[in-house]
Design a protein around this nucleic acid. Structure first.
Lengths: 132, 132
DNA sequence: TTTTTATGTTATAAAACATAACATCTCCTG
DNA sequence: CAGGAGATGTTATGTTTTATAACATAAAAA
C-alpha cells in the first residue's frame, strides 16, 4: 500500500487542471496555499504542480466552506489531523504498551466518522476524496 | 468498474508532465500522435491534454521500440487490439449463441498474455501500464 | 459602522506549448 | 556505396498559461 501513497503525492497537475477538477478559481487555490492548507511543489519554471492529495484537500475545503466553516476552523481541523498522525507515528517508534493500544484504539473510534466518510459519491469527476 | 475507466480517460496532463512521467521528448510524443497511436484532447487554448490511458500507451510504445519493433509494427498491434474490442462489443449487441461464447472464450485465451501482463513492476513512477 | 475575510480583477513578465520547417542519424535496399 | 525512408533533434515565431502583486469589494465579524 506504500506505492499508492507515493502516486497520490506526485506533483503532476498544473493549476489549470486543478481549477477544472475542483471548480475553484486560481485565486482561491493560491489563497488556500497562502493559508498553509496545501503546499504544492514548484517545477523548474516556478509553476505550481499539484498532487491528487492536494486536490483531495481542496475538495474537502470546498465542502467545509459550504458547511459554513471559515478558514480558521478549517485550519484547526487539519492541525488536529496532523497531530493524530504524529501520535500514531510516535507510537510506532517505541514498544507499544497495552495502555497505548487502548488509547489509540479509542482515538480511532472517535475519528472514524470524519475520516472515513465517502460523503455518498460526490460525483466529483475525478472522484477524489480518497479513491483512485 | 465503469468509474475507473472514466477516470483513466480524463484528459488532465499537459505535455510537460507527460514528458517527465514517460521520459519521452515532446517531439516523440507528438510524433506518436501523428502516427495515430494516441489522440490527446485539446483544451480551450489548443493545448494537448493527456489521460492516464494515453500515458499507458506511450509507455507501451517505449517498450515496443526497445524491443526493436518499428512504428508500423506497433500500429499493427494496436489495430489488432481495436478489432478485438469491436468484436466483443458486437457480441454484446445481439443474442449470444453458444458458438459465440466458445469463440470469444477462445480469443480471450489467446490474448491473455499480451493484455494481462504487469511486466513485473516497471517502476515507472506513476506505475501506469494499467493500475491506478 | 469599521475591520477583517475571502475572493474578484487587472497589469506585467516569464514559462510552457503549438506549429512548421529544416537538420541529422540510422537502417535498408538496389 | 549511394540514396531514400523512418525517427528524432533543433530552431524560430506566435499564442496560451501561470506567477506576482496591487487594488477592489461583498459579506461576515467585531
Amino acid at each position: 500500500m506504500k506505492e499508492k501513497e507515493l502516486r497520490r503525492s506526485l506533483s503532476v497537475f498544473p493549476i489549470g487542471t486543478v481549477m477544472k477538477l475542483t471548480d475553484l478559481t486560481a485565486r482561491q487555490i493560491r489563497y488556500y496555499e497562502e493559508q498553509q492548507l496545501i503546499q504544492p511543489q514548484r517545477n523548474d519554471g516556478n509553476r505550481r504542480m499539484y498532487s491528487l492529495n492536494d486536490i483531495d484537500v481542496l475538495l474537502e475545503i470546498k465542502d467545509y466552506l459550504a458547511e459554513g466553516i471559515n478558514m480558521a476552523g478549517i485550519k484547526h481541523i487539519y492541525e488536529m489531523q496532523e497531530q493524530e498522525q504524529e501520535k500514531k507515528q510516535a507510537a510506532l517508534k517505541r514498544p507499544v504498551t497495552d495502555e497505548d493500544v487502548r488509547r489509540i484504539f479509542h482515538d480511532e473510534l472517535l475519528q472514524q466518522g470524519r475520516l472515513n466518510n465517502d460523503e455518498q459519491g460526490h460525483s466529483t469527476l475525478f472522484h477524489t476524496h480518497k479513491p483512485l
